[in-house]
Amino acid sequence: MGGGAILRYSLHRLAILLVVVFFLFPIFWIALMSLQTNESILRIPPSMVFTPIFDNYQALITGKLITQAGSLDLPFMKNLFNSFFLSAASVAVALILGVPAAYAFARFKFRLGENIAFTLLSFRFAPPLLVLLPLSLIYQTIGLDNSYVGLIWVYQLICLPLILWVVRSYFEDISPEIEHAYRIAGHNWGQSFLRIAIPLARPGIAAAGLLAFIFAWNNFVFALILASADKQPVTVGALAFVTASGIQYGQIAAAIILSILPTLLLALYAQRYLVEGLSLGAVKG
């Protein structure tokens, strides 16, 4: 490696470092905040020197928030569970419905096929508030308000189009002849869907599932309107930190860190499937 190459390599690394610092700094700052008291957070000027405390995490995990105004119940862990359950169940339902649908859209040309696919996509760019008011009335009438089933159903607006479109394009990239070769060897198309198409599209399904999970996890308005306290996810539950005695910055920061963790772990886990996508090159075309 010549001098020029080393220089270019170092500059390249430096540029990446700058980008990473720029994007991760807020997270890093929040992590610091989560280890401080409200007073130390609000010091002027701000400082990175402090004695770390774990009171914020303790309060969230035990569910008891102690303030000057007294003790307050915090359903944070319940919220966290709700977030996890709602997101996971929504993605599961969306995968069960969306992957076969994506396969159908990719492989079979049928009347109005494109229109149906586009309508499903349009759910993604319709403003949620537009549907929320009528939806909450309908839900109240049929008794689906404040139920997991009702929420998971609405979450399909977020998850299903995403999975449908991402997975569809993956199926389209797999040569149909690979499946034909399998079918002509004595298998029906159901077997070829399960044994050939799905395994080959696995990176795409993992990516779409992960994205759908994150979108569902981050959703706020649907749950705000349609769920009451015991079904609320963390996004809505975080409102409880705005208390009568002020905003609990430390706990908010700790709550953010705790609620990032599941998606982060999931992303790390799904990464190996995502990377598999790079070696899918041979299948395409």
Binding site: I178, I184, G186, L200, A282
Partner: peptide, 16 residues
Amino acid sequence: GKRGVAMAFEGYSLYP
């Protein structure tokens, strides 16, 4: 799958 024929495809189509 029921026809009992074998085929070599124009696009090879091997299982990756």
